[in-house]
Design a protein around this nucleic acid. Structure first.
Length: 719
DNA sequence: AGCACGCCGACT
DNA sequence: GTCGGCGTGCTC
């Protein structure tokens, strides 16, 4: 889709006569919709399809369209759709010296299409170079990138930067191995534990495109189950793609696939391989020598040939959110991909996100769940204890542990390793009702209430001050901020069991596995090692920190992390016990006890719909210096349904801390407005934001730097 | 982003 | 007259 420019480029008094002639000619020709391609003299053009439509590789939004170039005869053979090219681009090149155009820089681009003529009325510049004959940008990949750019109000070039790895000549030179013939369809194996598990595999194996939200049973079988889904898809002669949250998960599925299918059928795409190896793997996938791909989020764009299945494990893990503009989420990208390629879709997790529940609720995907007796057979016993109930035991008091928790650890250590989950530092507490601990929300827009510097209670979304707050749940008038200090508890715990080794796993040093012998394993959420034979018990100490985060997902996230830890514990029948120290009446705590993450997500979804929260409504955040945000909101032509919340001041980041994308530079005061649209209007909102951003950029209020604003669709941390 | 075009004020 | 200020708009 290239926008027609009716005016001739350049022109004016200073132009050389040759150019004036061309301008006059093009003005005359402007009435004819399709002009014959003309270029500056001297160049012999390709005889067939002499026009190349090029996507210029610049992330700037107002350049987010195609430009036509003439194909010189000598580049005719190489200039195929999908190849990387270099072109001269930039104004001020309407100078002719020695019969050749010059000026403007050489920039990279992708050749999108070859055409018989151009709808551009001016003279075309010629392609400067075909960088390599490798057609890296297929029609499918371009279509996907376009859809992702639209969904996230980003530029196509930005998305392509995520989707196509940088070229490496040596990797391109390597010969990719011949593809292996499809393997036989696998046995359903442990998929039989799920009500529709075997049918799901059969559908994949027979060329179908089933779409499922899979609530995985606790335990280590998930990676093998994913491998079987991949094998079933391969057996139908199609390709499969699995996106995983981190390197440890990739290693597990890699091992499971190798065990099931041997080497050579799947490629592993992770960021930690060097650029050459990464590109070589990517090329092997594109060339069809590996039909199955597993990897971390960058693999979501992998150019798998004849895609039959896209799968995602644990979509609630925030590492599935891309860090680079426009920050697409792997789940959303794979959704777009499944829709575009009409392939199977599998979203698996031990837990369940609200988005996953919505896919089932809307009828787009079917639930893939196990019966209650299977769940009971696989899950540990979960017990809760409020943090008021302190033990009488001296050592337990030192560790500030309730007696039930203390007993669980002591008993567990007789049988094997015991996992202790402690919160990560840096969780911001939010305001909650002092009586029932329900989160305090704004009565106008349901945003989270926060205390400002002056001590006044304000909404974090719309900025309205709240003076007469009382709890709508229980009627109490007092608020409390959540506080934590459980890391110390874990240290005390280690001191209380001096005979037992203490291992720690956390951000800096993550343990992959621990032996089955008695040990205290202290870990932050997400870093829990797998224990051989499963943990005998787990103690989840971070209730308040997890539930107190100023985030919409606090409840869902807490449940997901608890479930992830508890899934590493032996089943109840083998003595596995989990104790969670948190208020037993809270919804996520109850969901853990009943082991019902799906039910929790469904209820949460209903509540979000009622309150106008994402993912039912779609939200976007616009942040930047106050005047820039105000200007953006004034000039943007938002859809009529759009609701503007705020802007409110963002916290000023203290100096010295590394700056996050979209966050103010240290010491600077920024504001943020939230935009909200009802279901079905997300695309319109994204389009409006993209247009407004493009208009601002063209006016020179550059994006990212200077007086620009950041636009983020589906913002995280929105209270 | 660059970079030229173009329409206004000070200058040889 | 014309040199050059930077405001505006385009880049095939």
């Amino acid at each position: 889709m290239s926008s027609e420019n009716e005016q001739a480029g350049g022109g004016g008094e200073g132009a050389p006569p040759e150019q004036l002639a061309l301008i006059r000619e093009s003005v005359r020709k402007a009435k004819t919709p399709r002009a014959k391609p003309r270029t500056w003299r001297g160049a012999a053009l390709a005889k067939e399809l002499p026009v190349a439509r090029v996507l210029v590789d610049k992330g700037v939004l107002h350049l987010d369209r195609y430009f036509d170039y003439a194909v010189p005869e000598e580049l005719d053979a190489q200039a195929q759709p999908g190849v990387r090219v270099r072109v001269r681009f930039g104004a001020g090149r309407h100078r002719v010296r020695e019969g050749r155009r010059e000026g403007g820089g050489l920039i990279d681009g992708f050749l999108v299409e070859r055409l018989p003529d151009s709808d551009y009325s001016g003279p075309l510049a010629a392609l400067a170079q075909v960088v390599s004959p490798e057609p890296v940008l297929s029609e499918e990949l371009l279509g996907l990138a376009r859809a992702v750019a639209d969904r996230y109000a980003g530029s196509l070039a930005d998305v392509l930067q995520l989707a196509v790895p940088p070229r490496n000549a040596r990797a391109e030179q390597r010969v990719s191995p011949e593809p292996l013939p499809p393997p036989p369809a696998p046995e359903p194996g442990s998929w039989q534990r799920y009500e529709r598990g075997a049918a799901f595999l059969e559908s994949l194996a027979s060329g179908g495109a089933p779409r499922a939200v899979w609530n995985a049973l606790p335990g280590p079988q998930w990676s093998e189950e994913l491998a079987r889904a991949v094998a079933a898809t391969l057996s139908s002669g199609r390709g499969a793609l699995v996106v995983l949250p981190d390197g440890r998960a990739v290693a597990r599925v890699d091992a499971a696939l190798t065990a099931l299918l041997g080497e050579g059928r799947h490629a592993v795409l992770t960021a930690d391989a060097g650029p050459e190896k990464r590109y070589a793997q990517w090329l092997a996938v594109r060339r069809g020598s590996a039909r199955a791909v597993i990897g971390t989020r960058a693999a979501m764009f992998a150019p798998v040939q004849g895609l039959g299945l896209v799968a995602l494990w644990d979509d609630g893990d925030d590492s599935h959110s891309e860090q680079h503009a426009p920050q697409p989420h792997a789940r959303e990208v794979l959704l777009l991909r499944a829709a575009q390629d009409k392939c199977g879709f599998l979203l698996g997790s031990w837990s369940c996100t609200v988005e996953a529940a919505q896919l089932v609720e809307s009828g787009w995907a079917r639930p893939l769940v196990a019966g209650r007796e299977q769940v009971r057979g696989a899950a540990p016993l979960v017990r809760t204890v409020g943090d008021g109930d302190l033990a009488r035991d001296e050592a337990a008091r030192a560790a500030r542990l309730p007696s039930l928790a203390w007993q669980a650890v002591r008993d567990g250590l007789r049988q094997g390793p015991v996992l202790v989950q402690v919160p990560r530092r840096g969780y911001v507490p939010r305001m909650a009702c002092a009586g029932c601990r329900a989160p305090a929300r704004c009565r106008h827009c349901s945003g989270p209430l926060e205390t400002r510097d002056g001590g006044a209670l304000c909404c974090g979304w719309c900025g309205r001050e709240e003076s007469g707050w009382h709890c709508p749940e229980c009627g109490a008038f007092r608020l409390r901020a959540s506080v934590v200090g459980a890391r110390r508890t874990a240290e005390e715990l280690g001191r209380a069991f001096p005979a037992v080794p203490v291992r720690t796993s956390g951000r800096e040093h993550v343990l992959d596995t621990v032996p089955g012998a008695p040990a205290l394993v202290v870990s932050t959420p997400g870093a829990e090692p797998v224990a051989e034979g499963g943990y005998a018990a787990a103690l989840l100490l971070d209730g308040w920190a997890m539930l107190g985060r100023p985030d919409l997902r606090a409840g869902e996230d807490a449940l997901r992390r608890w479930i992830a830890a508890a899934s590493l514990v032996r089943p109840q029948s083998a003595g596995g016990t989990v104790v969670v120290v948190a208020e037993p009446t809270l919804r996520p705590v109850q969901a853990l006890v009943r082991w019902d993450p799906v039910g929790h997500a469904v209820r949460e979804l209903a509540e979000r719909a009622e309150l106008g929260f994402p993912p039912v409504s779609r939200m976007a955040a616009v942040s930047g210096p106050a005047d820039a945000v105000a200007d953006f909101l004034r000039t943007a032509e938002l859809p009529p349904e759009a609701e503007v919340l705020g802007p409110v001041p963002l916290p000023v980041p203290p100096p010295g801390r590394p700056r996050r994308a979209g966050a103010p530079p240290p010491g600077e005061q920024w504001e943020r407005a939230l935009l909200r649209v009802p279901p079905g209007k997300g695309a319109a909102l994204a389009a409006a934001l993209k247009a407004a951003q493009a208009a601002r950029m063209a006016r020179g209020s550059g994006g990212g730097s200077g007086t620009g604003v950041w636009v983020r669709i589906d913002p995280a941390d929105i209270g």
